[in-house]
């Protein structure tokens, strides 16, 4: 596990939750919020390992629940399931294509709030639901789909800036060196 990658991912998750809470212009312009955690989870699942996916689900879910009225811990499982699903079948996905990222981002951005809502209802909470919820889900899905390829590129660029590439061991072995000289 590369620690720098994990720290970078957690910083992005922290900022994603902050932006979702602090800036309400998507809500005013589009009529619904945009969540960046599911697209970030898709990026993490396609590029990194299961440990990073798990840590992102735990931290991102806890931060989101801390600022929301969801029962504490509700967002963890949906985020993890979305990340695990993508991670499990990532070898079968054309993950470098924008189109694939777009579709995966849309699926995750729809699945995470729906699963969270199911868990919230199962806990006996009374969220505000109606036809406006359907529109919120549409905005979340489309917004998440558009954000996924952008986040993918951002993550790539940030990794190039902050994460050292791993040292690849060369094929040179000193014990196999042919020493030439006088016998």
């Amino acid at each position: 596990m590369n620690r720098a990658r994990l720290i970078l991912l957690l910083v992005l998750a922290y900022l994603a939750v902050f932006f979702q809470a602090a800036f309400d212009w998507p809500q005013r312009w589009l009529g619904g919020p945009i969540s960046l955690l599911p697209p970030l989870m898709v990026c993490a699942a396609l590029r990194l390992g299961l440990t990073e996916v798990t840590v992102l689900a735990l931290c991102g879910g806890l931060w989101l629940d801390a600022l929301s009225a969801n029962p504490l811990g509700t967002s963890l499982l949906p985020l993890f399931l979305a990340g695990w699903g993508v991670w499990r079948w990532r070898e079968a996905l054309l993950r470098e294509l924008d189109y694939a990222q777009l579709i995966l981002g849309a699926c995750a951005s729809l699945a995470v709030p729906v699963l969270t809502l199911v868990l919230v209802l199962s806990k006996g909470a009374e969220p505000s639901l109606g036809w406006h919820t359907a529109w919120h889900l549409v905005v979340l899905t489309v917004g998440g789909a558009v954000c996924t390829p952008l986040l993918f590129r951002l993550l790539e660029r940030l990794e190039r800036l902050f994460v050292h590439p791993e040292i690849v061991a060369g094929s040179f072995r000193p014990d196999r060196e042919i020493k030439r000289g006088r016998y």
Binding site: V17, Q20, A21, A22, D24, Q27, G32, P33, S35, L64, L67, S68, A69, N70, P113, T116, L117, V120, P127, S128, L129, T133, H136, L140
Partner: peptide, 14 residues
């Protein structure tokens, strides 16, 4: 107002 509830199904602010 510092922030809004990040989830769409709650109407709350901080």
């Amino acid at each position: 107002v510092l922030a809004r509830d990040p989830e769409a199904w709650w109407q709350a602010i901080h």
